[in-house]
Design a protein around this nucleic acid. Structure first.
Length: 210
DNA sequence: TTGAGGATTCTC
DNA sequence: AGAATCCTCAAA
């Protein structure tokens, strides 16, 4: 365990991640993503990806140089480049060579907020600092150089830990965002009513508001 | 507050 | 060609 992790935070152990991403994802809610410089944010939105039945996952067609870390040991980061501009950060789950992971989609900053504001000049509210996978990665400085980072040993100065807040017992569960295949899988979880989630749940065309 | 459209580069 | 997205701008 990294010596820079405060005593009052409990590191998630390797075995936590060595399970299906659909089990790990909801349990990551309310956990803290932590950088060695003191930045910390509470994870409030996640999505599960991977497995031979998930055509929306980067791992669907087998390992490539890009997705190598997603097929590696659980508890490491898989960081990918997206839309020519953004980085997305995943936590590798399951067993080696399985290719399953949890995408970190949104978090609520709790510490080191000034540094996040520096890295996210476009954010007009603190609510915009990490309320999306690209924003979250930017606020934490996660890019290609963090691909493969070990969240259990803190090899790259990033870990995930708990502060005593348990995962919510009633998370909102629904379809994933921003994909075009396997759109019906209910593999997105977020903390109910939380203001820092990335997007409003898509509103059904017929059953609109009211 | 909401929606539309452009940005930009890696991957297969 | 299309992408696990973000930002700006316009209009209400």
């Amino acid at each position: 365990m990294p010596d820079w992790l405060p005593d009052h935070w409990t590191l998630l152990p390797r075995r936590f991640y060595q399970r299906p991403p659909q089990e790990v994802a909801p349990e990551l809610l309310n956990a803290l993503l932590i950088r060695s410089d003191g930045r910390a944010a509470r994870i409030v939105e996640v999505e599960a990806y991977g497995g031979s039945q998930d055509p929306a996952a980067h791992s669907y067609r087998g390992p490539t140089p890009r997705t190598a870390s997603m097929f590696g040991e659980a508890g490491h980061l898989y960081v990918y480049f997206s839309y020519g501009i953004h980085w997305g950060s995943n936590v590798v789950c399951g067993q080696e060579h399985e290719g399953v992971a949890v995408l970190l989609r949104a978090a609520e900053p709790v510490q080191g907020i000034d540094r996040m504001r520096e890295l996210r000049p476009a954010a007009r509210h603190d609510r915009d600092l990490a309320s999306g996978p690209g924003k979250l990665s930017q606020a934490f400085g996660l890019d290609k150089s963090f691909d493969g980072a070990d969240l259990v040993t803190g090899s790259h100065g990033v870990v995930i830990a708990r502060d005593g807040t348990p995962p919510p017992t009633d998370p909102v569960i629904g379809p994933r965002i921003g994909i075009s295949r396997a759109v019906a899988f209910p593999w997105r979880w977020h903390v109910r009513g939380h203001r820092h989630v990335s997007a409003r749940a898509p509103r059904p065309a017929s059953a609109a508001r009211r």
